[in-house]
């Protein structure tokens, strides 16, 4: 029985020409990248497109991968850069239709519909955060990255990232309190 290869071992194998390693990396990371991009872009098709681009860019940059490198910050930084680039190019942010959320009547049990609505609520609240705070919440909370790594990914100091996260969480709490169906 062979041990499960690490992300870095898979990446190095891919650099050496192992095509199956790329597929394995994709299966391991595509759902995570997709979740990240979906929360940011709030558009399923766009999220898939950016996920696709992330892996294509990873392929293009594969020869830069160092033996002592870590794959996760690479992938997350590529995805975040592509999301930012999308916002820059589109020069628009989707406006949140809060009224629709308020009108949605919750069911007593957690049906699929309710779960979907709750996810939408979270997306709406995240969308109201400034981009710099949203990406920190994404990486720190949802991707479970320590502040030091978040700082490396977004290209800022650890202290600044901590402040951003703290402000973002407080704002999210307040937003969700206001947005939640009564």
């Amino acid at each position: 029985m062979t041990a499960k290869r690490t992300d870095e071992e898979l990446m190095l194998a891919y650099v050496d020409g192992d095509q199956a390693a790329f597929r394995e990396l994709f299966e391991r990371w595509a759902p995570i990248v997709h979740g990240l991009t979906r929360r940011h872009l709030r558009d399923e098709d766009l999220a898939r497109e950016v996920t696709q681009q992330t892996f294509f860019k990873l392929h293009g940059a594969r020869n830069d991968f160092r033996r002592d490198g870590k794959l996760r910050p690479w992938l997350l930084t590529i995805a975040m850069n592509l999301v930012r680039e999308h916002w820059r190019r589109s020069k628009r942010r989707q406006h949140v239709e809060l009224d629709e959320q308020r009108e949605a009547a919750p069911e007593p049990m957690r049906s699929d519909l309710e779960l979907e609505q709750r996810a939408q609520l979270l997306h709406d609240a995240l969308a109201q955060l400034p981009e710099t705070q949203r990406e920190v919440v994404e990486l720190h909370y949802f991707q479970e990255r320590p502040y030091k790594e978040v700082a490396e990914i977004v290209g800022s100091s650890e202290g600044a990232v901590r402040v951003r996260a703290h402000r973002a969480y407080r704002k999210l709490e307040a937003l969700l309190r206001n947005l939640a169906p009564r």
Partner: peptide, 9 residues
């Protein structure tokens, strides 16, 4: 809790 209902691939 809120994120639990998001569509997965």
């Amino acid at each position: 809790d809120l994120d639990a209902g998001a569509a997965e691939l």
